[in-house]
Design a protein around this nucleic acid. Structure first.
Lengths: 134, 134
DNA sequence: AAATTCGCTTGCGTTTTGCAAGTGCAAATA
DNA sequence: TATTTGCACTTGCAAAACGCAAGCGAATTT
C-alpha cells in the first residue's frame, strides 16, 4: 500500500521521497517542539491538516522508521506518537529551516527567543534537545 | 497566478509553502552542487522532472526570490538560472539533509567524499561554497 | 444504557501531477 | 535565403493526490 519509490540515489531526492511534502515535517515539528503526541493533537495544529492526509502521513513516517506508535499510558483509546532516533536526527535540519525562515520571514516571538538560544550555541542546543527527546 | 498562501506563522510551515514539494529542492540542488543553470540542464537530471512541473517550480522559486533568470552570455535562446542570496542561504539546510541521508541511505561515493569534507569542518565548507556561488 | 471521545476510513468533488505533443523564437546549417 | 535544429516553455488530457464532510468501531465517560 505504502510503497517507497526512490527516484534516484541522490540524498536530497531520497529524503524528499520520504518527507518531501507540505505536511510531513509539520508532524515532525509537533513531535519535536510542541510535544504533541496523539492523533487529535496533530489535528489541533494551526495548519489544519485533514484527517485522511494525517493518517497517510503518519503511516508513511512510521513505515520509514521516522516515528513509532506507542500505547498511551492513560487509555487504550488513545495512541502515542513519538520520534525514533531517525526522527530525532532530523533536528539539525529542522533548526536550519528555522534559521533560514528567521532571515526571510517575520516569526512569532516565542520562536525568535528559541532561536536566540540556538544562535548562542547551536551544538549545545541540539545536544540538549536530543537528550530530552529520546 | 502564483499566489503564496501562508498556512500559519510557523517557520517550518512558511518555508514548506515555498519549497515544500518533491521537486523544488532538487532544482536548488542542481544550482548548488551541479552548477546546472539552463532549463535543459534541469531536465537532464536523474529524477526526470516533467517540463510543465519544472516551469511552474522555476516560476515559484523566482517569484519567491530564491532564484533569478539571467541572459545567457552565449545565446539569446538560452536562459541562465542562478541562486540568489536567499537561495544560497539554503546551503546549510541542504547540507543537513545530506548528512541525515548519509546516516540512513547508501549514497554514491562522490557524494560521500564531499560529505567527508563537510564533516571535517562544516562551517569552513559552507563559507567556501557560499563564496563560490555568489 | 446512552452519549461522547478517539483514531481512523470512506466518498466524492477539486486540484495537482505526469506524460506527450505542440508552439514560437533564436541560431545553426544547407 | 530557406530550412532545419535547439531551446524554453505551453497545452491537453488522463491519473493520482488533496481537502472536506461524514461515517464507523472500539474505548471511555455519564
Amino acid at each position: 500500500m505504502m510503497e517507497i519509490k526512490k527516484r534516484s540515489d541522490c540524498p536530497i531526492s531520497s529524503s524528499l521521497d520520504i518527507w518531501g511534502d507540505k505536511w510531513s515535517l509539520l508532524i515532525v515539528r509537533d513531535l519535536m517542539f510542541k510535544k504533541q503526541c496523539t492523533y487529535g493533537d496533530f489535528l489541533k495544529s494551526d495548519e489544519k491538516i485533514a484527517t485522511n492526509i494525517l493518517a497517510s502521513r503518519l503511516q508513511m513516517l512510521e513505515t520509514n522508521g521516522v516515528i513509532i506508535k506507542l500505547d498511551h499510558p492513560e487509555s487504550k483509546a488513545k495512541v502515542l506518537y513519538k520520534l525514533t532516533q531517525k526522527g530525532v536526527d532530523l533536528l539539525p535540519l529542522m533548526i536550519e529551516i528555522n534559521l533560514w525562515a528567521d532571515k526571510y520571514f517575520t516569526l512569532p516571538i516565542e520562536i525568535k527567543s528559541m532561536l536566540k538560544e540556538v544562535k548562542k550555541d547551536k551544538d549545545a542546543f541540539i545536544k540538549h534537545k536530543k537528550i530530552e527527546l529520546l
